[in-house]
Design a protein around this nucleic acid. Structure first.
Lengths: 329, 329
DNA sequence: AATATATATGTAAGCGCATACACATAGTTG
DNA sequence: CAACTATGTGTATGCGCTTACATATATATT
């Protein structure tokens, strides 16, 4: 019995007599033999590994995505490596080169610092790449939700409640996601013919604390000049919305009575905090799932046209948004 | 220039002339060469990969742990594979054999279904294993917090508030973690000489919905007989506590006025929900970090005596616990 | 019966790397 | 200067696996 026969028996490839196959299988079971996947990848070129590169699993948006990725991946024989970049350019780059030398088959990438050249390096190495959530122009496969539509949904909801002075706490400006949400926010005003005040948008970094800070900023400006008032705030993600609510309450304002607050993402916190947060729900799990499906598909068709999956966000109205009263207007 | 020289230059092993080394490095840079880690692992036997096997990243307790693992691991040249088992015996077992054939160097394991034989299989394969959070007797390396102490802290806090009828929503009974917490809960009663009612403990599964269900159970029993009343509930994790609060409020009771509620874990939700949840804080990130440190240490000393890291939990008093009033007593 | 085809197995090479060993040269020591 | 050591490089083998190719036997086709 040669190694070749054994290999064929184990893989079900080529011709192997029933009898030989049975012997191999029996021996494998008896010895508790398990294929060395790494050795195989040496010849096959496939590692059946995909990497999930994201800013921070600790941000409640990502675990759901990760779960989606993992479910699809493991159902299809892939393992997933988890890589946290903290939005740090250095870490991001270090990880990418590490992934290259590990020959992962694909990477699902929630970019923090947009760099096409980095991604191209992966592609040149034959590694499939798909972006999740944060887009990067029309060069790469992407799975995201329609952020413009989502932000419009949110803003229109607020407008329909009688708010016209709506502050916006955005995400990091270099991210397409942030740009798209801010665009939806603006478009909502334009489409209703409501004047729009650039002073009301403040940049955050998607973390809770930055939402708090942004809110303080906003409130300070009102106090000083009597100008820049607002009756509602729309934060580009729930975490910042939570921070904003905290800041508001610390300053003695109540949500939604004094100011209405909208979030984005619909993380679990949103439905449990008080007031329960109105928000834009994203299909996080599905995003991850589809992203995994997409990278895997891409692996076998490196030359296929760009894949673009744009899911629809959904307005979830809870208790943090209510008809305009406005203590800060 | 032979492959051997190149290998030595790249690894800094053996004798290599300065000049040769420079040439190699220059060429490597010029060609954007990266070591094929998998190929290397064929000869070295090390994959520089560790697996993190846990029930569900989506449970807010775990992302922090995962983050701790990842930080320590990546700082030391290791990648981490994420494996969700859903507490499903089948998935758990499937993953373990997959990890064996991938020759991971170590696995950090939050066990769902206690099975020593499974773990021994890994160990026999030369894979380092360390348990996190859920213990399994004194056979394996473990990183956890002192659950007995934690549960006592919680229960004593409630008792000191005047509560004597304290319901307990436990985790799955087959988990040591659950047993330990229930033991702490009981011990608190015993040490104060307060009678203890077995009827007041209900089993949950650590998920939010099960907390809700357990709470309904508890309330139903009160309604029927007039017996089994309670003025406080201690849930074995925050998620179930949230579920319990929900159930209570749905039934028209208010927390903490009618019944006080304590959680366990101190996930981010706890400080944001209303009422803000009193809970037992676990050093989640540290647990992950130390677990990673421990597996990596174990790899180089397979025969060393068992490593046991027991961290201390901390009482965090917020708004969900307050002096006994009791509408359900 | 001669030839073609399907089936079955083995041999050998190679994937990208590390390393034992042989060998060669330079530097030290007495 | 002989003998030895430290330094540098190359050759060859193997890690565990797949696969092209060669070979062999059984079965089918004309």
């Amino acid at each position: 019995m040669s190694v070749a026969t054994v290999s064929r028996a184990l893989n079900g490839s080529g011709y192997v007599s029933k009898e030989a196959k049975e012997r191999v299988m029996a021996a494998a079971k008896a010895l508790d033999y398990h294929m060395n996947v790494n050795a195989r990848s040496l010849t096959s070129g496939k590692t059946y590994t995909i990497a999930l590169v994201l800013p921070d699993v600790t941000n409640p948006f990502f675990p759901a995505v990760a779960r989606g990725v993992e479910d699809y991946a493991s159902d299809n024989g892939y393992c997933v490596m988890l890589c946290n970049t903290d939005g740090n350019s250095r870490k991001e780059s270090d990880y990418l080169t590490m992934l290259r030398s590990r020959k992962v088959d694909g990477v699902i990438f929630a970019v923090s610092v947009p760099s096409k050249s980095r991604i191209n390096t992966l592609l040149d190495d034959g590694i499939a790449v798909v972006l999740v959530d944060r887009d990067l122009g029309d060069s790469y496969d992407i799975v995201k939700t329609d952020n413009v539509a989502g932000a419009m949904l949110a803003t229109n909801h607020l407008i329909s409640l009688g708010h016209t002075r709506i502050a916006f706490i955005s995400g990091p400006m270099q991210l397409a996601t942030s740009q798209e949400r801010i665009r939806g926010y603006r478009d909502a005003f334009v489409s209703k013919g409501i004047p729009f005040d650039e002073q009301l948008v403040v940049e955050g970094d998607f973390r809770m604390e930055s939402g708090r800070e942004a809110m303080c900023h906003l409130m300070n400006r009102v106090d000083r000049g009597g100008e820049n008032g607002f009756t509602a705030v729309f934060a580009a993600n729930d975490l910042m919305a939570v921070g904003a609510v905290t800041a508001l309450e610390e300053s003695g304002f109540s949500v939604p009575t004094d100011v209405a607050v909208m979030g984005y993402d619909d993380i679990n916190i949103a439905s449990v905090m008080r007031p329960r947060l109105s928000t834009i729900a994203q299909p996080k799990y599905e995003m991850g799932w589809i992203a995994a499906e997409t990278v895997i598909r891409r692996m076998s068709e490196p030359k296929a046209p760009r894949l673009e999956e744009i899911l629809q966000p959904m307005l979830v109205v809870r208790d943090s948004t209510v008809e305009r009263r406005g203590a800060l207007a």
